[in-house]
Design a protein around this nucleic acid. Structure first.
Lengths: 128, 128
DNA sequence: GCTTGACCTTCCAGTCACTGGAACCCTTAT
DNA sequence: ATAAGGGTTCCAGTGACTGGAAGGTCAAGC
C-alpha cells in the first residue's frame, strides 16, 4: 500500500501519517523508488492511533498505548491507568467548559443585542 | 505601576503581559529607565483580557471585544454576536468531550485492570 | 517518445498562546 | 561593594499537525 491507500483506509490525512512516521509511531518500509510501503500491521496501527486520538489521547499516551498493545504480556492495569487518567482530564475539561458556558450564556441572555451601546457582556468582562 | 504590580493586580503572569504588549493588546508607556509603566486603564484592560481569556475567548476575539469595549458608540449586537458564536463553539466542545467521556468510561469500566493481558480498552481502540 | 495528471518525496514555515531560559540592566538595602 | 530582587530583550520550544514550494515517479493516452 502507498500512503494514499492507507490514508483512505484509516481516514488519516497523508500529512499526518508522514508526521507519525517522523515521530516514530509507525515505521513503514520503503520501495525502490523511495515511496513508503505500508503493510496491514501498519494500517492497523494507524487505525488504532486514529481512534485513540479521536478519544483525545495525547501523542505520548498513544505511544504508550501502542507499546502496550504490541506487548502480548502487558497487564491490563497499565492500560487502564492511562485511560483512567485521561478520563479524569476529560472530566475536568468538561467541568471547566460547562462553567464557561454557564457564565457566558448568562451574559448573552442578559444582552439585548440591539444597536444601543449598553452591554451586560462587556460589563461582565470588565469585572462586575 | 511596574509590570510586577500590574501582574499581581490582574493575576496575569508578567510574561503574558509582555506578550500582550507585543501583539498590541496593551501599550504601556515607558519610564526613563526603559521599564514599562502601567496606568489604571492599562490594568483595567488587562483585567478585561484575563476574564475574557478565562471564558475561553481567543486572542482575536479579545482584540475585537476590547475594541468594542473602548468604543462608546458600539452596538451591543456586535458584542453579542461574538459571544454567541463563542458560546456555540464551547457547546460543540462540550458535546465532543462528553462523547469521548462516554466511550472511554465505558471501556474503562469493562477493563479488569489487573495483571492479565486481556484488555477491552485496547480491543476498543483497535476497532471493535 | 512525449505530455499530462495524479501520485509521491523532502524540507521549511506557520499555527496558538504562551513559557522557559540566557544574558544583561536598574534599584534598594546592607 | 555587593547581593537580592526587580526589570529588559531576544531566542527557542511547546503539541499536533497543516500548508506550500520544489521536485521525482508512474500509468495512460496520443
Amino acid at each position: 500500500m502507498n500512503i494514499g491507500d492507507v490514508a483512505e483506509r484509516t481516514g488519516l490525512p497523508a500529512k499526518t501519517i508522514r508526521y507519525y512516521e517522523d515521530i516514530g509511531l509507525v515505521t513503514p518500509r520503503r520501495s525502490a523508488n523511495g515511496y513508503r510501503v505500508f503493510v496491514d500491521t501498519d494500517a492497523h496501527k494507524l487505525t488504532f492511533l486514529g481512534r485513540a486520538r479521536t478519544l483525545g489521547f495525547s501523542i505520548e499516551d498513544c505511544r504508550n498505548l501502542l507499546a502496550l498493545w504490541e506487548d502480548r504480556s502487558r497487564a491490563s492495569a497499565d492500560v487502564r491507568a492511562i485511560a483512567a487518567q485521561h478520563l479524569e482530564d476529560i472530566e475536568r475539561k468538561i467541568n471547566d467548559l460547562t462553567a464557561m458556558r454557564d457564565t457566558l450564556s448568562n451574559l448573552v441572555q442578559k444582552c439585548a443585542g440591539d444597536d444601543r451601546p449598553d452591554c451586560p457582556i462587556l460589563k461582565g468582562l470588565a469585572g462586575s
